[in-house]
Lab assay of single mutants.
Amino acid sequence: AQVHVDGVTYDFDNPEEAEKFAREMAKRKGGTVEVKNDQWHVE
C-alpha cells in the first residue's frame, strides 16, 4: 500500500500500517486523508 504525503510516496507491505501512518500524518498536519485507487493521500 502506498501513502502520499506532500509529494513523497511511502511504501508499506501492510495496508493496516499504511492506514495508521496516513491517519497519524494527517493528524500532525491538521489535514485530511483520502483513499484513491487503494492509495492513501494525506492533504
Results as ranks from 00 to 15, higher is better:
H4D: 04
A1S: 12
P15A: 13
H41W: 15
E17W: 04
V5A: 05
R28G: 09
T32G: 07
G31D: 06
M25S: 04
N37L: 10
A1P: 11
V8W: 11
V33A: 11
D11T: 14
A22Q: 04
H41P: 05
E16M: 10
T9K: 08
K27Y: 04
Q39K: 10
F12H: 00
N14S: 14
E17P: 00
K29I: 15
K29M: 15
K27L: 06
D11S: 13
E24R: 02
H4R: 09
E43Q: 14
D6T: 01
A26D: 03
N14V: 03
D13I: 08
E17Q: 08
V5H: 07
H41L: 11
V33L: 09
V33S: 05
V42F: 05
E43P: 07
K27A: 13
A22N: 02
R28I: 14
R28M: 13
V5I: 13
N37C: 15
A26V: 05
E34H: 15
F12L: 07
E43V: 15
A22K: 06
E17C: 15
D13T: 08
N37I: 07
D38N: 15
Q2H: 11
V33D: 05
R28D: 09
Y10M: 03
R23M: 11
N37H: 10
G31M: 12
E19H: 02
V35S: 08
K29Y: 15
F21K: 01
V3I: 03
P15H: 11
R28V: 13
R28N: 11
Q39L: 07
K29T: 15
H4G: 02
K36M: 10
A22P: 00
H4E: 09
K20G: 03
H4K: 08
D11K: 12
K29D: 09
H4P: 01
A22Y: 06
Q2V: 10
Y10A: 01
D11C: 15
V42I: 09
G7D: 05
G30N: 10
G31N: 06
T32D: 06
A26E: 09
D13Y: 03
V33K: 04
V8A: 08
R23F: 11
T9N: 04
V42N: 06
K29F: 15
N37V: 08
F21N: 03
E24W: 02
F21G: 01
D38Q: 10
N14G: 07
W40M: 08
E24F: 01
N14M: 03
D11M: 14
Q39M: 13
A26Y: 00
V8P: 00
K20I: 09
R23T: 10
D6W: 05
Q2K: 13
G30W: 06
K36I: 14
Y10N: 01
F12S: 00
E34K: 14
A1F: 15
T9M: 10
A18I: 00
T9W: 13
E24D: 10
V42H: 06
D38F: 07
K27M: 07
K36H: 13
D13M: 08
D6P: 01
G31C: 15
D11H: 14
A26M: 03
F12E: 01
E19P: 00
G7V: 00
R28F: 07
V35E: 06
G30D: 08
V3M: 02
V42Q: 05
G7Q: 03
T32N: 09
A22F: 05
N14F: 04
Q2D: 00
A1H: 14
T32E: 08
D11E: 13
V8D: 05
N14H: 05
G7L: 02
N14L: 05
G31V: 12
E24A: 06
A1M: 14
H41T: 12
G30V: 05
E16A: 11
R28S: 13
H4L: 13
E34I: 15
T32A: 08
P15K: 12
E43F: 14
E19M: 04
M25T: 07
E19S: 00
W40Y: 12
A26S: 04
K36D: 09
W40R: 06
N37A: 08
K20T: 06
A18W: 01
D6F: 10
N14E: 06
H41V: 14
A18K: 02
A18V: 01
D13V: 08
Q2T: 12
A26P: 00
H4M: 12
V5E: 02
N37Q: 09
K27S: 12
E16H: 09
E34L: 14
D38A: 08
D11N: 14
K20L: 07
V35Y: 15
